[in-house]
C-alpha cells in the first residue's frame, strides 16, 4: 500500500518537474493565435474594423472582444476563413463588400498639403510640402484613409480593372440551356 502510494507520488513529482521544465524551456512568445488571425487579415491597415490596424484587430478577435465580421476589405472570404480557424459561426459582413480599389490623386487639384502622406499607413504616397503628391499604385492597399484628410477633396478611389496581368480563368459554368 505504502509502496504504491510512494510510486504514484514519485511519478507525480517527476512528471510535474518535467512539465514545469518544458513550460519554461519551450515558452511561446506572444499569442500564436493572433499571428494566425493576422495572416488571414488583408493587411490594408485601414481601421474600418474600429481598431488601429490589422494586428490590434487580430488581438481583439483572439481575446474575444471583437467579432469576426468587421473587416470589409477581407470580404466574406475572410470571414469564412476566420470562422474556420476559430470554430465560430460564419456571420454576414457588417459593412458592404467592395471590389478592390486604389486611390488616385487628381494632380491638378492637389495643393501639396502633405496631410494624405501623413495619413497613409503604408507610405504609398510621395510628395513634399507645396509640391504635387502622387500615389504609388502597386503599394496602395485601398484603405481610403487618405480621402478624409484631403482639404481639397482631390483623392478618389478607382476600382482595379481587369488586365492581362491579373486576369483569371473563370470557374467553368454548366450551361443549363444546353442541357435542357
Amino acid at each position: 500500500m505504502i509502496t504504491a502510494l510512494a510510486i504514484m507520488a514519485l511519478g507525480a513529482v517527476v512528471l510535474g518537474a518535467a512539465l514545469g521544465y518544458a513550460s519554461i524551456r519551450f515558452k511561446v512568445e506572444g499569442d500564436p493565435l493572433v499571428e494566425k488571425i493576422e495572416a488571414i487579415l488583408p493587411q490594408t491597415q485601414c481601421g474600418q474594423c474600429g481598431y488601429p490596424g490589422c494586428k490590434p484587430y487580430a488581438a481583439a478577435i483572439s481575446a474575444g472582444e471583437a467579432d469576426i465580421n468587421l473587416c470589409p476589405p477581407g470580404g466574406m472570404d475572410g470571414v469564412r476563413k476566420l470562422a474556420d480557424l476559430l470554430g465560430r459561426e460564419v456571420k454576414a459582413l457588417e459593412a458592404e463588400e467592395k471590389p478592390k480599389q486604389v486611390a488616385i490623386i487628381d494632380e491638378a487639384t492637389c495643393i501639396g498639403c502633405t496631410l494624405c502622406i501623413q495619413a497613409c499607413p503604408v507610405d504609398a504616397i510621395v510628395g513634399a510640402a507645396k509640391q504635387m503628391h502622387t500615389i504609388i499604385e502597386p503599394l496602395c492597399t485601398g484603405c481610403e484613409l487618405c480621402i478624409k484628410p484631403c482639404p481639397v477633396e482631390c483623392i478618389h478611389m478607382l476600382p482595379i480593372t481587369e488586365n492581362l496581368d491579373n486576369w483569371k480563368w473563370k470557374y467553368p459554368v454548366i450551361e443549363i440551356k444546353r442541357a435542357a
Binding site: 490594408t44 503604408v122 504609398a124
Partner: peptide, 17 residues
C-alpha cells in the same frame, strides 16, 4: 499568391512606418 505577397509587403511597410 500575389495577394498574399501584396499583404505581406503592406504589413512590412506599415511596421516600418
Amino acid at each position: 499568391e500575389r495577394e498574399k505577397q501584396a499583404a505581406d509587403a503592406a504589413k512590412a511597410r506599415f511596421e516600418l512606418r
